[in-house]
């Protein structure tokens, strides 16, 4: 069995199993945790502010715009870039369609995908460098932060190398490395801060609802 065969077959199969087990474990486990009962009288219902918080927090309050600008721009570049690369590149679409039994959806031309990939990789590198150099960021960054950044960066970089048929290795090897790095990402998602992809909406809602009940403007 070649490295590519392993990456396409058992490697993919097992990493997906771990991903699914991990996601359900964390999501079900967290949602079923009993919340602390709030004995105070609610000033208003929590649902409205909860939903509002989910959307409101896509952009900071005016006074925080300037201090968080780096994170906002970098974060949006990274996330939009990832979305474009993951969901609008033809080979990826085929992968999803095959896995989920969906019809194939429209793809973007490869030069746009490459541009998005380059921006994504650049913003991830910028985040790592900032963590390493910014005095405060450095103190509050742990293994999970660096690892999550790099585990996200690897599939982007290996994917671009494979796509460009970079002569540093044969295409099959680069493709296998790309798949293996994706499989590492699958395993890492539920175990790390990358799980924010699962939790950001419920936790925004939860916090917004709690604030709402206490009469705090969300």
């Amino acid at each position: 069995m070649t490295l590519l065969d392993f990456a396409r077959g058992p490697g993919m199969q097992w990493s997906l199993i771990i991903l699914i087990v991990g996601i359900l474990w964390r999501v079900v486990g967290t949602l079923l945790l009993s919340a602390e009962k709030d004995y105070s009288q609610a000033r208003q219902g929590g649902t409205g502010p909860g939903i509002r918080a989910v959307f409101r927090r896509f952009w900071p309050h005016p006074e925080f715009v300037k201090p968080t600008l780096f994170h906002m721009v970098g974060g949006y570049t990274l996330h939009i870039g990832l979305f474009v690369v993951i969901f609008l590149f033809a080979p990826h679409i085929l992968w999803f369609a095959d896995l989920l039994g969906l019809p194939v959806w429209a793809n973007l031309p490869n030069n746009i995908i490459m541009l998005a990939g380059a921006l994504t990789a650049a913003s991830l590198v910028a985040f790592v460098l900032r963590r390493m150099t910014h005095p405060v960021m450095r103190r509050i960054s742990g293994f999970d932060d660096y690892a999550s950044n790099i585990v996200t960066l690897l599939p982007v970089v290996t994917g671009m190398l494979a796509f460009a048929h970079t002569p540093i290795a044969r295409y099959e090897t680069l493709l296998a490395l790309h798949l293996l790095s994706v499989e590492l990402l699958f395993v890492w998602i539920p175990l790390s801060k990358l799980a924010h992809a699962l939790f950001f909406i419920p936790s925004r809602y939860q916090l917004g609802a709690a604030f709402g009940r206490r009469g705090v403007k969300v």
Binding site: V21, L24, R26, V27, G29, L94
Partner: peptide, 27 residues
């Protein structure tokens, strides 16, 4: 080429069941 050589959907469905069970357990 980008489509996996995934053995079966049953494996993934079983994984989902196991994941949910572990989740309930841990909760």
């Amino acid at each position: 080429l980008s489509q996996g050589k995934l053995g079966s959907a049953e494996g993934l469905a079983a994984a989902a069941g196991i994941g949910a069970a572990i989740g309930i357990g841990s909760a």
